[in-house]
């Protein structure tokens, strides 16, 4: 599934929709170069659980935990890891065992230690805005993707067309407004 997000507002809105369909759990890999919008998308996911404040990049801190009511969301950035084993020293095992949403930037740095995710998101800078490619890697991931697609249809219905219009589904890419 591919989604085109024209601006920051759409990036956050899509993140929020994703956060809602996750329903409080899931392991998500976020891939993309510097400035691809990984932290912005995370801000949207956190908004789905009621977080209104700033979302800091966890590049330095490695893990930013959020407690939103009884819901926990972990935002990790493994960019500074030099060895996947370092995940042991930063409490990675506890994070993964928790019933929570776990978003991991730069998962390649934890390869061999990290389990397979539910969803893999690849972000890229497009001509305008960002293009996200979503791949399901588990049953939960597949369910999340079908819920998201359904929601894309609802979004399109709300804008007065009965199904995804041509301009919303250009070359199979969903235009998320």
């Amino acid at each position: 599934m591919q989604v085109q997000l024209d601006n920051e507002e759409a990036q956050v809105a899509f993140g929020e929709a994703l956060g809602q369909v996750l329903q409080g759990r899931g392991l998500i890999y976020l891939e993309g170069e510097l400035g691809a919008g990984k932290t912005t998308l995370t801000r949207g996911i956190l908004r789905a659980y009621g977080h209104q404040g700033a979302v800091k990049s966890p590049t330095y801190t490695l893990i930013e935990p959020y407690e939103l009511g009884s819901q926990r969301v972990y935002h990790l950035d493994l960019y500074r890891l030099s060895d996947p084993e370092e995940l042991e020293f930063i409490g990675g095992r506890d994070v993964l065992a928790d019933e929570a949403v776990c978003i991991i930037e730069w998962p390649s740095r934890g390869e061999g230690w990290l389990p397979t995710p539910d969803l893999r998101l690849a972000l890229a800078v497009a001509e305008q805005g960002r293009l996200i490619t979503l791949t399901a890697c588990s049953d939960l991931g597949a369910r999340i993707l079908s819920l998201l697609e359904r929601q894309a249809h609802e979004v399109s219905q709300a804008s007065a067309t009965s199904k995804l219009s041509d301009d919303q589904l250009e070359n199979g890419v969903i235009q998320w407004k």
Binding site: L34, G35, T39, A54, V55, K56, S57, T59, Y60
Partner: peptide, 17 residues
């Protein structure tokens, strides 16, 4: 305080670019 990246982190990321 910073609402997103820290200044030192911005320096490090500019270095990478």
């Amino acid at each position: 305080e910073s609402v997103d990246d820290a200044a030192g982190e911005a320096f490090d990321k500019a270095a990478k670019m």
